[in-house]
């Protein structure tokens, strides 16, 4: 059976095609103003027998396509355990939310925590800060890694942090140190949540922000157990959604 898994997020629409449970292709598109337009393109390929949707746009897709849906929690848990059967937990930092899932030894969801009330510490936050610093996203991560030490950023609210960053730039503070400070504070916050949920390793770090080498280094350095980063960290949700069709 050929399955198309769609993860319809606030920043991107991710797609994974499976045939007999194996990934045959994947794609990532910008959600833009119209996420439906993004997934219509994937559907138009016609390379699937069924579709399963996850992500915050899943109910819209269910309404439009009549397809089954699963939550992001289940999708990430399925995707992460398929990639790493030994996984103990999942951290997903996406465009606009953060999820922490602790897994049972058998692979199912044991507990989870979500933050999607505000963009603090998410991909969106990093984008806004990069813009304030005059960096491309990738440049910002590089600069953060290169900096010896970060400046302390006191606010995690996107709006306040942005003006704080602008202020620091005007004061002539090194942009690399600011970038490092921003990454430090997201990592600190994330590590605090991981502690609160009391997750065990290995931790699968997924989602768009897992492509950021500075964040990866900081999470690796601060987490008590092992950390695994999928090669394509952004499609774990879509992969899990597709797998759910196989009754896993």
């Amino acid at each position: 059976m050929r399955v198309l898994g769609l993860d319809i997020g606030s920043r991107s629409v991710d797609a994974v095609w499976l045939d007999d449970g194996r990934i045959t292709d994947y794609a990532i598109a910008d959600s833009g103003f119209d996420p439906a337009a993004a997934y219509e393109g994937f559907l138009a390929r016609g390379d699937h027998d069924i579709v399963v949707a996850t992500g915050y746009g899943r109910h819209v897709a269910r309404g439009a396509l009549g397809c089954p849906v699963v939550t992001e929690i289940k999708a990430y848990a399925l995707g992460a355990t398929a990639l790493y059967p030994e996984a103990g937990s999942v951290l997903d930092i996406g465009g606009q939310d953060t999820k922490i899932i602790s897994l049972k030894a058998s692979g199912g969801v044991d507990d989870f925590e979500m933050n999607d009330k505000c963009a603090a510490g998410t991909g969106k936050f990093l984008e806004v800060m990069a813009r304030a610093l005059g960096f491309e996203l990738a440049e910002m991560a590089e600069a953060a890694l290169a900096a010896e030490e970060g400046v302390v950023i006191s606010s995690m609210c996107t709006v306040f942090a942005e003006s704080e960053v602008t202020g620091l730039v005007h004061k002539g503070v090194d942009r690399g140190r600011i970038a490092r400070g921003l990454h430090d504070s997201i990592a600190k916050r994330t590590l605090g949540s991981l502690k609160r949920v009391n997750v065990r390793g290995p931790l699968v770090f997924a989602g768009g922000v897992a492509k950021n080498p500075a964040m990866v280094e900081l999470i690796r350095g601060g987490f008590a157990g092992e950390v695994r980063i999928p090669d394509e960290a952004q499609i774990v949700g879509a992969y899990g959604a597709a797998l759910s069709a196989l009754g896993r």
């Binding site: 939550t71 929690i73 999607d116 009330k117």
Partner: peptide, 12 residues
């Protein structure tokens, strides 16, 4: 947000 959390809980 609440719906997602409740759905995920029911799935679990």
């Amino acid at each position: 947000q609440l719906t997602t959390r409740v759905e995920a809980f029911l799935e679990m």
